[in-house]
Design a protein around this nucleic acid. Structure first.
Lengths: 227, 227
DNA sequence: AAATATAATTATGAATTCATAATTCAGTCA
DNA sequence: TGACTGAATTATGAATTCATAATTATATTT
């Protein structure tokens, strides 16, 4: 029996969930911004029904906040939310590390190696955009290698939420260098298939990232308070 | 500034999400069962619009499966899904253990101790229903103690999904005794506020539960194949 | 002019309607 | 009898409509 994949026709609300989530994660729709249904319906060329369905889903994912009779707002990225989300992501990454080592084959490793090199190249020219992209690619590849689709979806959702923080703080040079070092160590552990240590390092890597972002936020708030 | 909580008026779709999720987790709506919109609209006394919104949310949570132009079905609880979900829950529980030890005060500990005793009492009379309830209470209290609301919501959703497995397999006496022992050890570590060890034990506890359930499923399938 | 009350407008929650896809069922033919 | 065809029915996706809550604009009072 050949496992032919079922044909999947998209519905408007599914398409809208994806598109709206992108707009939010890419900071086109800003945190706290009101989302007037009418405007979005016009720009997407759909009626309110599928749009509202999409908003309900996005609300359950934490990207928008619904207020009864007052419509939807883009959820804001708070210090508190990040402090809650990062430890969870870190715990998931630990699991990713363990599972990836268990499942990754030679071809998979090579693919990650090349992404890693792309990331190093981006770092050497201090190309932030490329670095972010390559960095994300690596993490995604590792998650893929974990072979756990549920883990993937939960991780993706949480990662997308905290990723929005990159628009409120900048990656500092010092942290950047540290992140590169951590990635080198990660590659080494991946080659050795040391799942336990890789998991721990990935967890730590994420918590360091968290600390860096929180520090940056606090400094921003500090300087803003001084105005 | 007193943080007064905003008054929250419920909407139909929110109410429906909760009620439908309950029906699914409580196995009133069986895995694989078709969900005809009309019937549910009649029994809840609402129109299709809020019901459909609720179904979209439940689909994003993984409790129902939507097929374009073919309506909704209750998601089935597969062996594969459990094998994916449990390690994630275990990873979250590990985090719960660490955070709970960090945050739990004397009053919180006493409250958990009493729930623990209730669980032991239920076990001594082999009252499955009470045991499940007390067991769930303890885990919920620990999550509450972790102080991480995002962790709580993710854990709740995943736990609800695997909880449905209790209707396809029975808790075996052997595993039951082992679970009690693990809980005793957990209480000991909680009293000592040893977060690291508690986290590891809670993770292991969950993976043991996973193994027991998978074993039970495999045995069921084995015996069914023999028919 | 500022503050309040009232009316007009707009936006939202939910029911209804409409077009179309899927399913069921009767009829036909081998 | 049993597989196929096509009409009738039903269910679904999405637009529209409707009632009401929220907001804005206008009028009134001090």
């Amino acid at each position: 029996m050949t496992a032919i994949e079922h044909i999947k026709r998209p519905t408007l609300h599914e398409e809208l969930v994806v598109r709206l989530r992108e707009l939010i994660v890419e900071d086109v729709l800003k945190p706290g911004e009101k989302i007037p249904e009418k405007d979005l319906c016009d720009s997407f060329g759909v009626s309110r029904t599928p749009l509202r369905e999409a908003l309900k889903v996005l609300a359950s994912e934490g990207f928008v906040v619904l207020q009864t009779n007052r419509g939807a707002r883009v959820a804001s990225v708070t210090r508190e939310e990040l402090l809650e989300a990062f430890p969870i992501i870190a715990a998931l990454e630990q699991l990713v590390g363990e599972l990836a080592c268990r499942n990754l084959d030679a071809a998979g490793l090579r693919s990650i190696e090349s992404r890693h090199e792309a990331m190093i190249a981006a770092y050497s020219t201090r190309n932030r955009k490329r670095y972010f992209k390559a960095n994300q690619d690596i993490h995604e590849a590792l998650i893929e290698a974990s072979g756990n689709t549920l883990l993937k979806s939960h991780h993706e959702l949480l990662a997308a939420r905290v990723q929005r923080a990159r628009f409120i703080v900048n990656l500092l040079d010092e942290r950047w260098a540290q992140a590169i070092e951590e990635h080198e160590a990660m590659m080494e552990l991946l080659r050795k298939r040391d799942g336990k240590k890789l998991g721990e390092l990935m967890k730590q890597h994420m918590m360091n990232k968290c600390a860096a972002i929180i520090r940056a936020i606090d400094e921003t708030e500090q300087s803003e308070a001084g105005n």
